[in-house]
Nucleic acid binder design. Structure first.
Length: 308
DNA sequence: CGTGTCC
DNA sequence: TCCTCTGTCTCAAGACACG
DNA sequence: TGAGACCGAGGAT
């Protein structure tokens, strides 16, 4: 029991803010969100963030028995199947996709990397155990957690898209940042991503659940950056500060400050500097170190190919 | 719409 | 007492055609 | 990996 506590303590401390952001926007700037549909996107150029897509294909397509679809010599083809049909779906709806592939991940803290490899290891152990003693469902479930797209599979998808005449962009770093840059540079109308960080990167429009097959279960949402700022009264830089307070990759957040307090504090004080000045350090001590200023830079000016 | 199939 | 935040668990993750 | 549900601990009122 105590062993488990140690293992789980402080895990997922970073990158928690994104999920809070969705409900925060819904509450504070409801006009920035609207339910839309595929048909409404006809003629639009959309920068599609492909990170996670291959993972979804690999884990969702043909996995009744825990393995993927394969060609005659045993190579996995699920990622190609998924990429192909999704692209067809865009095209037949008159949508012009630009697929943006992830480059190297941004520099993470060593602690973060250690956590990830620990997770991977844990998943592997679970899988091995399931193979020994578990049901086939267990094996399928745990094998999904150990699955990840290989370099080769990424390249295969890029080749497929190129042959289909679909533009592909290789982001030097994070795909969402590159998508936002394409939109800001006028090359695309919207970002298609599941990641709310896209708004912090300044995309004008963010589309979520672009992959939805079932409109009822997974409605397609459109987030409008300008309306978001108008509704909340924030400048873009203030919005970025809010995102940092909610939790980001580059800097720890303040314990006890969640969505509600972070929003109120930013409304009142307009910057993290001022927020910190007005916090009672005995009740809400800031993390040491608390490099929030350094955390702004990779959000305001992320590494990506410039479009302007 | 649920269900099975895609390799 | 109420509100807010944290921690933990759990689950599901595509697209199509056919009936 | 992300999102919803549920819980207990504290500060807020």
């Amino acid at each position: 029991m105590p062993r488990k506590e140690i293992i789980y303590r402080d895990r997922d401390r970073y990158r928690m803010g994104v999920k809070k952001l969705r409900s925060l926007i819904e509450e504070q700037a409801p006009k920035a969100i609207k339910n839309t549909e595929f048909k409404a996107l006809e003629g639009r150029i959309i920068a599609v963030d492909t990170s996670n897509n291959l993972y979804q294909f690999l884990t969702a397509i043909g996995t009744e028995n825990g393995s993927s679809l394969m060609n005659s010599i045993g190579e996995t083809t699920s990622h190609l199947q998924g990429t192909f049909y999704r692209t067809i779906k865009f095209m037949s709806n008159g949508i012009k996709p630009v697929f943006v592939f992830d480059g190297a991940p941004p520099t993470l803290k060593s602690g973060e990397l250690a956590k990830r490899s620990a997770k991977k290891k844990e998943a592997k152990e679970n899988l091995d155990e399931a193979k020994e003693t578990g049901t086939t469902e267990d094996v399928a479930k745990f094998s999904k957690r150990t699955t990840s797209a290989t370099r080769k599979q990424n390249e295969e998808c890029i080749k497929l898209l190129t042959l289909m005449g679909i533009p592909v962009v290789r982001a030097p770093c994070e795909a969402e940042a590159q998508c936002a840059e394409l939109v800001k540079g006028g090359k695309a109308w919207a970002s298609g991503s599941e990641d709310m960080d896209s708004l912090a990167f300044g995309t004008k429009i963010l589309l979520r659940n672009l992959t939805a097959s079932d409109q009822k279960k997974n409605p397609l949402w459109e987030f409008d950056h300008e309306k978001l700022l108008y509704g909340t009264g924030f400048t873009h830089d203030q919005f970025i500060d809010l995102c940092i307070l909610l939790g980001c990759d580059y800097c720890e957040s303040i314990r006890g400050i969640g969505p509600v307090r972070a929003f109120e504090l930013m409304q009142k004080h307009k910057s993290i500097e001022e927020v910190v000045k007005h916090l009672d350090p005995t009740k809400y001590p800031v993390p040491v170190p608390f490099p929030f200023d350094e955390a702004r830079e990779p959000i305001q000016e992320p590494t990506c190919h410039p479009c302007r």
